[in-house]
Design a binder for these strands. Structure first.
Lengths: 346, 346
DNA sequence: TCCAGCCTTGCATGCGGATGCAAAGCTTGA
DNA sequence: TCAAGCTTTGCATCCGCATGCAAGGCTGGA
């Protein structure tokens, strides 16, 4: 197995010093036109590619970013992953991924990433305060994604998980829904908790009866079992709002197949995350779409800025999300509303 | 931001040389009990963790593995990813991920990984012969996953994508199905092509009429449009076999919602990959389960062995897969079969 | 008691590239 | 033509750890 060419090899072939080669391959390096040409020719001939490991050691930057995500098969994190990878590779950085079980904290993942000397960490899982402190102690920018951080020096980028619920409640209210149930993931699931809180608040603000809140696994099966637990009382409900699409879809299957209900005529359903599954013809699930690409772009931006300006106020950014209405909800159309007597809506 | 401790810091504190520290942290390093204790105490006090980048430079190994996967939201690659990450971290290695669009070749991804100096590459996407040669030239073991490689020095781990189709055909045949259609992903999709070939061969072997083969996108939408393209002729069919669950599910939705057909009574459906979506109560899709963990374990094993024994015969390993029967197919049960007159089955 | 042989330890160097510093080369204006 | 000032170049060193080599310490057997 042939060793790959080094800058010394290139220098020898080009008849220059190693530092000249290094300068040709550095963005700020000064080199004359002729030197540059001879070096590039030699480099091309030898198939020279600068060794990123040596570069890392010298620069004190690994050009590796860590990403911690929670394992949910039905979440749309494949999309998030792709966003992150693409954004990182734009600047020549690579992504180190850690996947955390939904019921676990991400502390071990953070530790492993720090040991690998990543330059920054994007974390979309719950972690302890100590884990966050480890990052700031090591000077590694940490950005939480869709999660709160109670630790100084840590930035966060979130969808307005709570605020969007006002839109959801407005929509349900306009369609005449009054009694709602919320399906949440429970445990230390920050996203679910925020969505729940937002929903309950929005119901109160809109004058709806306080919704029932059920917690179960943050999955299809969790959605199913939560609805099954309601039993016959489900017929008193007007709408099911779930903290993610997976639970909403689980709920839909039970509502239709076990209880024989019609969606949205008998009961409406709202999910969250706008997954591909929710767009299936069988579901056509009304959901909330997050701007994952925007979230990751912002998160990376924050992490980079943190390197340049270590002591700056912590950022707490939200990236706009959006309610996508499909056929599991039934807001009256403009024409339908016209047919109602004025005032009926209140 | 405080710099992290180095082996020199530890050495100074412990009153030994840097090499002593290095030896304490090396698996084969020799150090007396007292030295070891003093070094470990000093290391603990300083929170010393060996810098993996310096280690990499010194050892010529990055302890980074590259993984190239195709982006399919409805595939179960979240599971595959988790398997790979977990297996790698067992040995202290990390995973660099590259995600390739379904319609693209993975050549750019391979190049990026090589430039990052990964120690090995696991590739579950189509790549050109040249890309594979780049790997072997650079001495980086390349293992293809569920893909053929026509390049010397490259190993491959596959499910028996073709052979399992005999089981599928046996099952369909037993239920009385005769006229089948196969939905494939087309393009340079090796997995789909293998499954298709296997199915057609199995039908021939079993004496069934030659199946219709339709190609479309390897997705839910692709499955839908393929079935829609059949039009009314769909009523002449007994079974739809798809190259993945996503297409099968798209097909199911069109068969039921557009054509009003009953599954499995009017037509049977078989998918592939045993995704979570296929297990939904609404689908209960008969599918083929691959042993992803086993596949990745074997792939990593091959890559590692390739490092130790560079010139060995190329390995071509298959990891057993398994037909999982659910309610979209209807193989007669033993009791049902008893009720049939003997010989009816032939 | 003495020496052979093993275990420990430190020194020096290598891995491959970045960069401060000073010397050398070049441009420009008087 | 010459000096001031800028650019280009090479030298030396650093980044942090691993390891070959040789010196020193230790053990045990004769």
């Amino acid at each position: 197995m042939d060793k790959r060419a080094t800058s010394y090899d290139v220098a020898r072939l080009a008849g220059v010093s190693q530092s000249a080669v290094s300068r040709v391959f550095s963005p700020n390096g000064s080199a004359s036109k002729t030197t540059r040409e001879r070096v590039l020719a030699a480099a091309h001939e030898l198939g020279f590619v600068p060794n990123p490991i040596a570069k890392s050691l010298s620069l004190g930057r690994s050009r590796l970013a860590g990403l911690v995500v929670t394992q949910y098969a039905q979440q749309n994190y494949p999309l998030a992953l792709k966003s992150a990878v693409d954004l990182m590779s734009e600047t020549g950085d690579a992504l180190l991924i850690q996947i955390v079980d939904p019921t676990d904290m991400g502390d071990a993942a953070i530790r492993q990433l720090l040991e690998k000397r990543v330059d920054m960490i994007l974390c979309a899982a719950s972690i302890s305060r100590e884990a966050a402190v480890h990052c700031t102690d090591a000077g590694v920018p940490l950005v939480m994604i869709n999660r709160q951080s109670e630790c100084a020096g840590v930035d966060a980028v979130c969808s307005p998980n709570d605020a969007i619920m006002h839109d959801v409640v407005d929509m349900l209210h306009a369609s005449g829904a009054r009694h709602c149930v919320f399906l949440g993931g429970g445990g230390n699931n920050w996203v679910s908790a925020e969505r729940c809180r937002g929903f309950v608040e929005a119901c109160t603000a809109k004058g709806l009866p306080e919704p029932i809140v059920l917690e179960d696994a943050f999955t299809y099966n969790g959605g199913q079992s939560a609805i099954r637990a309601l039993g016959a009382s489900v017929t008193n409900l007007d709408a099911v709002v779930a903290a993610n699409d997976a639970m909403a879809i689980g709920a839909m299957d039970v509502l239709r197949l076990d209880f024989g209900l019609n969606i949205p005529d008998d009961i409406q359903v709202v999910g969250h995350d706008d997954t591909e599954t929710g767009r299936f013809q069988s579901y056509q699930l009304t959901s909330v779409r997050q701007n994952m690409l925007g979230i990751f772009a912002k998160a990376i931006e924050l992490a980079v800025s943190r390197r340049n300006e270590y002591r700056r106020p912590d950022a707490k950014i939200t990236v706009k999300n959006e309610l996508v209405e499909r056929t599991t909800t039934a807001r009256p159309t403009a024409s339908a509303r016209d047919r109602l007597a004025p005032g009926t809506e209140e």
